[in-house]
């Protein structure tokens, strides 16, 4: 089976999701035997980093020869992927369910006339009749649905952090790929780009420290940031915290905010309302810190501390620093 993987880059660096996408394709379909994975890079990156995708299962990597794709524009990228789908004769397209993936996959599903299994939690179960069984969370993490997917062409997008990439194979060849997009033009014009500088993007983070109204004001956020720094975590917050502008809106997690799935989620001074949990409850390990021993968060947490955040946080930060030093 021929598989095309779309691997995202930003500013010339492969995103974490690029390696995950290659690994996801390999782990999903290697049991079928005789698979061939071509990776299309969504822009130009370092040659070595591109070749290293072979370690995760890529058979070949296509690096755009032109700089046209270096900045993300959904219509250009969608056209480039369609071109690569034709050239590779792929039957399956794999990409991450990130902001880019969420813009591209639905367009491609219609343009390429492919069934789209979006935001799946793990590799599909491949049935003997050729159909897939996939699982995804629904009702904002309050349920899991199993679907059957069929059709000659299929697109699979997976939630970031869905599986641990495993390397082991060797680097592969990187081909300069001619993007022939002469007949296609960008359909949006970039006016301004604001990048969150020097922070771990929330959706990619393996660890997240999140603060709620219990922190009493933005001036206390250094406690959250110190803990985040001590364990290389991203920071997040509850909805009222971003509504009150204590923290910027892109940190808001929950049903109406971002959905995340880190390995570790530490909730500090957050009650655990159902709408908040909707965005975080599939985190692997949850720690709750709250003065109220009856706070709903303790019902879903794996570990809990009943106590005042202002006392607990410095102690916890110190303890983590001790572990990391020792």
């Amino acid at each position: 089976m021929k598989i095309l993987v779309y691997a995202e880059q930003q500013d010339g660096h492969l995103k974490k999701s690029a390696v995950e996408a290659v690994s996801f394709a390999k782990q999903s379909f290697e049991s079928l035997g005789n698979i061939n994975i071509t990776v299309l890079l969504g822009g130009q990156v370092n040659q070595q980093a591109a070749a290293d995708l072979g370690k995760y299962g890529a058979n070949s990597v296509w690096m755009p020869a032109q700089s046209t794709l270096n900045a993300f524009e959904v219509h250009l990228h969608s056209a480039a992927i369609q071109q690569a789908l034709v050239e590779t004769e792929a039957e399956v397209l794999v990409m991450a369910h990130t902001y880019c993936g969420k813009s591209l996959a639905p367009r491609l599903s219609v343009a390429w006339d492919a069934a789209l299994a979006a935001g799946v939690n793990g590799p599909p179960e491949c049935a003997a009749d050729g159909s897939w069984k996939v699982q995804r969370t629904v009702y904002s993490n309050k349920g899991i649905a199993t679907y059957s997917v069929w059709g000659a062409r299929r697109i699979l997008t997976f939630t970031p952090n869905a599986l641990k990439p495993s390397d082991g194979a060797s680097p592969c060849a990187v081909t300069a790929w001619n993007v022939s997009l002469d007949s296609v033009s960008a359909r949006t014009r970039n006016l301004e780009l604001q990048k969150v500088q020097g922070k771990i993007p929330l959706t990619e983070a393996e660890r997240v420290i999140s603060g709620g109204r219990g922190l009493k004001g933005p001036e206390h956020w250094h406690l959250i940031e110190d803990l985040a720094e001590a364990c290389d975590a991203a920071t997040a917050c509850s909805k009222p915290v971003s509504d009150m502008h204590w923290r910027s809106h892109d940190e808001h997690v929950g049903q109406t905010g971002i959905t995340i799935k880190p390995d570790l989620y530490i909730a500090v001074g957050i009650s655990g309302a159902i709408q908040h949990l909707a965005g975080v409850s599939s985190s692997k390990t949850i720690v709750a810190i709250n003065t109220d021993q009856d706070a709903p968060f303790f019902k879903v947490a794996d570990y809990g501390v009943v106590g005042d955040a202002f006392e607990v946080l410095p102690q916890l930060t110190q303890a983590i620093r001790r572990l990391r030093k020792g």
Binding site: G143, Y303, G307
Partner: peptide, 27 residues
């Protein structure tokens, strides 16, 4: 293109294990 086969509730989590404030190293 897709057929929904079934729903399930997320797996339930184990009971929360509590730590006192002086047990941060243990946590």
């Amino acid at each position: 293109d897709m057929q929904l086969l079934e729903h399930a509730l997320p797996p339930s989590r184990q009971a929360c294990k509590f730590f006192e404030i002086h047990q941060m190293d243990e946590l």
